[in-house]
Design a protein around this nucleic acid. Structure first.
Lengths: 202, 202
DNA sequence: ATTATCTATAGATCTATAGATAATGC
DNA sequence: ATTATCTATAGATCTATAGATAATGC
């Protein structure tokens, strides 16, 4: 029998972490449907039935992988969130470089978001909401910069927020597809600089 | 027995087209791995064995779907290619609106490119090369605009090309995920205008 | 005569369950 | 005494093949 039960032992916690790590790598490389439980279990060093003890269904595993990734992305965003207005946008110029530091997490995000574009599921809602929150963060920074007089009064925060999100996302895809030949770090820095130059008050 | 043979009858050609259409819709919605041959066959109004007569393997079907999509995208790009330099870039401002006209083809592209990010396959190579060609088209236009004195001499064509491609791609994803709330057409127009404003000669 | 489609089915996965066994903590 | 893992297997897909039958073109 199984059932995650109340208390977990150190050994179990380590296994859980190893499974999550293996699952993240394989989901990132082959997608959710492309990576089988057996392949993930093998990568983590146990049998598929052993894996199922820790995560009752494949979907539970996916949700746990997403949750772990979300927590890490939140952490990566902390230095951005710590700032306001123009300073926040300037810090975001470095976010391309931040993403280059973790290719697996970046590929996971691209793959899973594309795989859950339309279906009505928990994963789809997660991505929809995450994009909404990210755009709201940027739109708020543009508004603050405008209110502070650091950027032009006639800028459109919603459009600027969506476009800045888009560049980061699109660079991610090209960076992955070109195997690093297209620079996320460089592209993002150039974009943010350009936005600030264009929107600087006359 | 089967085998595509030399001559195809009108009935067969119509069926082929119906299968390609159904496959495009289902691949776009559920991805290559997510859409089964049986589901595609049902959508096209025949059995899976009937489908296999027209496309011997699922991968053959995928390649045919991609080829058909590529041809349509080439057609959509014709008005862009017909121009040079700054005029080409200005025409590209309307490309977001062009993509909004075909949500299925747009979703197909996002889904399949993400699904074939890393694996070494014909589909992966197709996307890698298509992005290279698209960036080369834009980089060439930036160079021409610079040479003609329409844009600043110190612009970086490679970075501008990658970033413009990125915005289009990223907007595509947000447009799909937000169910149209984020406007591809508006975002792309704003971006191109902004680039031209920023890079206009002093 | 050839092209198109169907029924039936083989063979390969894949997720998940049941129940036994091994390892760990108290 | 509880937690973790294994073997064995059920049941559901899924791709693809073989061979029969139906529809079409000459």
């Amino acid at each position: 029998m199984n059932a995650p039960a109340g208390t977990r032992q150190p050994r179990g916690l380590a296994r859980r972490a190893a499974i999550l790590d293996a699952a993240r790598r394989l989901f990132a490389r082959q997608g959710f449907k492309g990576a089988s439980l057996a392949a993930i279990a093998q990568e983590a060093g146990l049998t598929d039935a052993g894996l199922i003890y820790h995560f009752p269904t494949k979907n539970d595993l996916l949700l746990a992988v997403i949750e772990a990734g979300d927590a890490e992305q939140d952490q990566a965003l902390a230095p951005v969130r710590a700032r306001r207005g123009l300073a926040l946008l300037r810090r975001l110029a470095e976010f391309g470089a931040d993403l280059e530091a973790d290719p697996v997490l970046t590929a996971l995000d691209v793959t899973l978001s594309a795989e859950h574009l339309q279906e009505d599921s928990k994963v789809n809602r997660y991505f929809v909401q995450r994009y909404e929150r990210f755009r709201a963060l940027l739109a708020g920074a543009f508004e603050e910069a405008r209110a502070a007089g650091d950027l032009r009064a006639d800028l459109d925060p919603a459009v600027e927020a969506a476009n800045m999100t888009a560049v980061l996302d699109g660079l991610r895809l090209q960076w992955l597809l070109s195997d690093g030949a297209v620079s996320m770090a460089g592209g993002m820095r150039a974009y943010v600089e350009g936005v600030i130059a264009r929107l600087s008050p006359p």
